[in-house]
């Protein structure tokens, strides 16, 4: 059986049939690029020794339009996103699995590009993709490619990080500029195209988290503000912990370009997606030490204390605006869409 034509070929129904065409695709694409001993065994599952401590598991379905955007693509995103979900428990990620739903007619060249990008992200982060699955749906029943990744990790002893642990008085730390990913995606979306040097912040945060818990094992909450942005993450944490939040607009790291894009399209940067940032809630006495450590990590040079947790039964997130007024930072209603009025 010949290898698939990665230059001109497209996904056919047979690639998901489980027959020889499927096997060839898996061998010549997935196994070749993800290359690791567990995957090489060729089983329908990966077996590995259980380590001591608490384990975490998370799963994330990735659908993104466009598939390729400045600073990344659906492949790298599906690796970083799931590693981050594992890391937000304070865990060291160990393994990933990946399921691909491919649409009939999807160019093999694009698929290969995505898989190579995914493999690179996996190699760079040191977290292997050890098992996976591929299915093909008829043309018109998918959007090119959907990728679901599952991650497994282990939490070091003595670390208890959860969204319900925020306490009044705690400091709220943000690891860097907000809205880069959302801006990069919008800039390449059909009909909205605008020129910008902003690229997605897509990155794996597990080494940052490891460094953080080393100096501040008392961190209470960690969460990556992805879809729905910083505003949504703060509201989630406030509700989960039964507290309020007070933040300062002037303290939130925001690039001029992201602000410009938001003004132009009538969007609010607080709701713009991020893929390489985290929000950390930590007791005040550890905040200074933690922030200093974060500033030494390449992914958190602009980390800042943006506010504090308050006692509030209504679980409101309020913001002192740069203008001097106060406003409620609410949950996002529906999806954030560009507006003309």
């Amino acid at each position: 059986m010949n290898n698939p034509d990665f230059k001109h070929g497209v996904i056919e129904m047979a690639h998901g049939s489980g027959g020889r065409t499927s096997a060839t695709l898996i061998e010549s694409l997935f196994v070749r690029h993800f290359d690791n001993p567990l995957l090489q065994q060729g089983n329908d599952q990966a077996a590995f020794a259980v380590t001591s401590g608490r384990m975490v598991i998370t799963t994330d379905a990735h659908v993104v339009s466009p598939l390729f955007f400045p600073g990344g693509d659906i492949g790298s995103l599906s690796v970083h996103g799931t590693i981050n979900d594992v890391a937000m428990a304070g865990a060291q990620p160990l393994y990933l699995s990946a399921a691909f739903i491919l649409e009939e007619g999807f160019p093999l060249a694009e698929l290969e590009r995505i898989v190579i990008s995914m493999a690179r992200a996996s190699r760079e982060t040191g977290i292997p993709v050890v098992t996976g699955d591929t299915k093909v749906v008829e043309r018109g029943k998918g959007d090119g490619v959907f990728i679901t990744t599952t991650g497994i990790g282990v939490i070091p002893d003595g670390i208890h990080i959860s969204g319900h642990l925020a306490r009044p008085g705690d400091a709220i730390i943000l690891s860097g500029y907000i809205g880069d990913h959302g801006t990069a995606i919008l800039s390449s979306r059909e009909g909205l195209e605008f020129g910008t040097t902003i690229t997605s912040d897509s990155a794996a945060l597990h080494t940052l988290v490891a460094a953080m818990i080393e100096v501040a094992p008392d961190i209470r909450c960690l969460r990556d503000p992805t879809r729905g942005g910083l505003a949504t993450t703060l509201n989630e944490l406030a509700r989960q912990s039964g507290v309020g939040m007070h933040i300062e607009e002037a303290a939130i790291p925001l690039r001029a370009e992201v602000r410009g894009a938001c003004e132009l399209l009538g969007l609010d940067p607080l709701y713009m997606a991020n893929e390489g940032k985290l929000v950390c809630i930590v007791p005040q006495q550890s905040a200074g030490r933690l922030l200093a450590r974060m500033h030494h990590h390449p992914l958190a040079r602009q980390a800042a204390i943006i506010g504090h947790v308050t006692s509030d039964e209504r679980n409101l997130v309020v913001m002192q605006t740069g203008f001097g007024g106060m406003r409620v930072v609410d949950w996002l209603a529906g999806e954030q869409l560009p507006r003309i009025c």
Binding site: G266, R314, L316, V318, M326, R327, V328, D330, A333, G334, R339, C341
Partner: peptide
């Protein structure tokens, strides 16, 4: 509410109801 608007003024971010809801609802309390 903005999630389930019944009237048009609750939809647009510049509709009076949406503005009241998003920014004004808890203003007095805040």
């Amino acid at each position: 509410t903005p999630e389930e608007p019944k009237g048009a003024c609750m939809v647009s971010s510049e509709g009076a109801c949406a503005a009241y809801y998003s920014y004004g609802r808890f203003r007095a309390e805040v």
